[in-house]
Nucleic acid binder design. Sequence first.
DNA 1: CTCCGTGCAAATTCTTTGCAACGCA
DNA 2: TGCGTTGCAAAGAATTTGCACGGAG
Lengths: 159, 159
Amino acid sequence: MESRIDRIKKHLHSQSYKLTPQREATVRVLLENEEDHLSAEDVYLLVKEKSPEIGLATVYRTLELLAELKIVDKINFGDGVSRFDLRQEGAAHFHHHLVCIECGAVDEIQEDLLGDVEKVVENDWNFKIKDHRLTFHGICYRCQKQEDPEQQEQAANHS
Amino acid sequence: MESRIDRIKKHLHSQSYKLTPQREATVRVLLENEEDHLSAEDVYLLVKEKSPEIGLATVYRTLELLAELKIVDKINFGDGVSRFDLRQEGAAHFHHHLVCIECGAVDEIQEDLLGDVEKVVENDWNFKIKDHRLTFHGICYRCQKQEDPEQQEQAANHS
DNA sequence: CTCCGTGCAAATTCTTTGCAACGCA
DNA sequence: TGCGTTGCAAAGAATTTGCACGGAG
């Protein structure tokens, strides 16, 4: 079976880019930490564990390249750092995020919740939507539990 | 009648902050350019026209303060720069944005389109929403016109 | 007098760039 | 050989911090 790495490799080749060892190491780190919204520096440190010779600039260049090819999305949660998130394969749109203002955790919502909203925007504002970014800020189910020890269960059955 | 500046002044006072001349000048610039999503540097340059002695650091400190008090929102469209946007008075939630990938224009949607979506998120993910950020990337009505001279009218009747 | 707020310059942080060297076609 | 890619160091851009001064209560 064709692996995700293989498909990314083809994607690069189709634009005459190569999947060099450094790029592959970077992609692997992203795959292994798919839920984690790593910053460039995070990625660099993780790649460095396996491939100590790599340079930070290369990681930046690789991430930029992957973003350009829409293999990853570059996101920004308001701290001054860009974070990088693998796209779901074949996903037309970017997934959504839940940022907890208590503990800082970032959860993902893969389902597209915006179908109806996008119709409204396209019709009423005559805006041709290509992509979207939706982030909710609030309190995650873990922190809610801590605040109110009564309340338990529910949630977490989506990721 | 009480002006918007007066209410902001009270808001500051209620937290034992003062509306100094520098802060007032900064707020005025934001009020006069409410649609423009200015960067800190933009604000600085505009404030400087009226109050040349002001320092860039002061503008940063003021904007940070205003963001903390939820008078402005700090937003980030993916270029490396933070932009600042006055909140609508009394708005519980942040308004939405339409970013044109052709011309870079940023339009605002003041209506809250996310009521239903938020219900789903709160119920299904057990996430207590405090705020949200929604940005659409696509092509604005102006650029669509240019690409297809046939199509005219519509839109712009919302801002 | 005491603080809060300020200007300026220096420091930090994140990211990009210049350039010589490398490696595969 | 030729060109895309890399590492390192330097440059750059945005933002923050240290510090002495100034003004209102």
